Amino acid sequence: MSVPSSDFSLREIALPAFGPSLLFGMGEGAMFPVLALSARDLGASSAMAGLIVALVGIGSLVANLPAAALATRYGERRAMVGAAAFSLLALVLCLTATSPWLLGLGVFMIGLASAVFLLARQTFLVEAVPLQMRARAMSTLGGTMRIGLFIGPFAAAGFIHLMGLSGAYWMAVLAMLGAGGLSLVIPDLETRATTGAAAPARIHMRTLMRQHARAFLTLGTATALVSALRACRQIVIPLWADHIGLDAATTALIYGLMGGMDMLLFYPAGKIMDTRGRLWVTLPSMLIMGTSLLAMPWMATGFASLLALCLVLGLGNGIGSGIIMTIGADASPREGRTVFLGIWRQITDLGSSGGPLLLSGLTAVASLAVGIMTIGSLGLLAAWMFWRWLPRKAVSR
């Protein structure tokens, strides 16, 4: 039974609920832009530098299911503190690395910590927030992470100016210290799980997968397509900008403006999902993103047209903030929820890993335009799957 939404305000829990995620996102955002450059400085080839950057996502993929076990055993709050501490160790390794392999190990460790932190934060909010406000909570969680990732590079710029590339990692250290310290000192949120009821029995992962196979195969697959679309979007824009002759500075401007659009609408979108239903946001989000990518090879022939399409793409992604976490939370059972969400993250991370591989393969055997349009068609497929399997009305159970 959920807490009445009339007695609950997200504003009252903003700091404990979203503060750690904002700081964690800032830490990751500070280091992401310099990972490849650091690898090159240590003697890595361009291919190896790309692999080292990819180790963040690989680490997250590997850690999703162990993260669920850790959060279940030690609790979400302890898991977040531990993840922040583990990230600090990883950043020290990055700072002291004398070879690309040591840097790669540090980056991989950050990916592991990220999976633990985000899963623990999502599970914590699912329990703490009334069902009638779940989408707003999930979209705000996604929005704060995006804000952190957006602010991080700007915050790191001053440190880099004073200290060189290592300054980005020191900025990340400060952010991770803040995330871990805040997670440690803030009081636990009052959750629906702490109402005096007996703790639910633990359910084996295999049992959950069997019991909820339909949800994983239908809505889980649809959200994996969302992840694939989002991951490819970050690759498509610089590649197509280069294809039409735009320089790196212009491409960065386009990318930054699109990132700003991403952050504008996360809360209104969450409110619409809570009051009108999940389909009112997921369907337009996928249709907008898919259509934008399908149109890119045909319409984006210069700066203005590419910028316009990227802003529309950012709009589609922005209104979809939190949809993966919200749909996963809706589908999750009360007993075994953390493990279920770990499996859900594993499925969606497979999408974010597989999408770029599909794009790369299609580009190699056909062309970049064919690859982009194929990825765009995945957005339309996801829209159809959401239309087919998502409830038409707001969740009220």
Rank of each mutant, 00 (worst) to 15 (best):
A84T: 12
A84N: 08
A85G: 11
F86D: 03
F86Y: 14
S87H: 10
L88C: 09
L88P: 04
L89W: 09
A90C: 07
A90M: 12
A90Y: 10
L91A: 07
V92D: 04
L95M: 11
T96Q: 08
T96M: 09
T98P: 00
T98K: 07
S99E: 13
S99G: 13
P100Q: 12
P100S: 12
P100F: 08
W101N: 06
L102C: 08
L102W: 12
L102M: 14
L103V: 12
L103W: 07
G104Y: 03
G104V: 03
L105R: 07
G106W: 11
G106S: 08
F108V: 02
F108Y: 09
M109C: 13
M109Q: 04
M109K: 06
I110S: 01
I110M: 13
A113E: 02
A115H: 04
V116L: 15
V116F: 02
L118M: 13
L118Y: 14
L119M: 07
A120R: 05
A120P: 06
A120I: 13
A120C: 08
Q122T: 15
Q122E: 10
L125F: 12
A128G: 09
A128K: 02
A128F: 03
A128L: 05
L131D: 08
L131R: 14
Q132T: 11
M133S: 15
M133E: 11
M133Q: 15
R134W: 05
R134F: 04
R134H: 09
A135L: 07
S139V: 09
T140A: 13
G142I: 07
G142Q: 12
M145N: 15
G148C: 00
G148F: 00
F150Q: 01
I151V: 15
I151N: 00
G152I: 07
G152E: 03
F154W: 11
A155E: 01
A155C: 11
A157F: 10
A157G: 10
G158C: 02
H161L: 12
G164E: 10
L165Y: 06
L165S: 09
L165M: 10
S166G: 15
S166F: 05
A168K: 01
M171C: 15
M171W: 01
V173H: 02
L174K: 05
A175M: 12
A175P: 01
M176G: 02
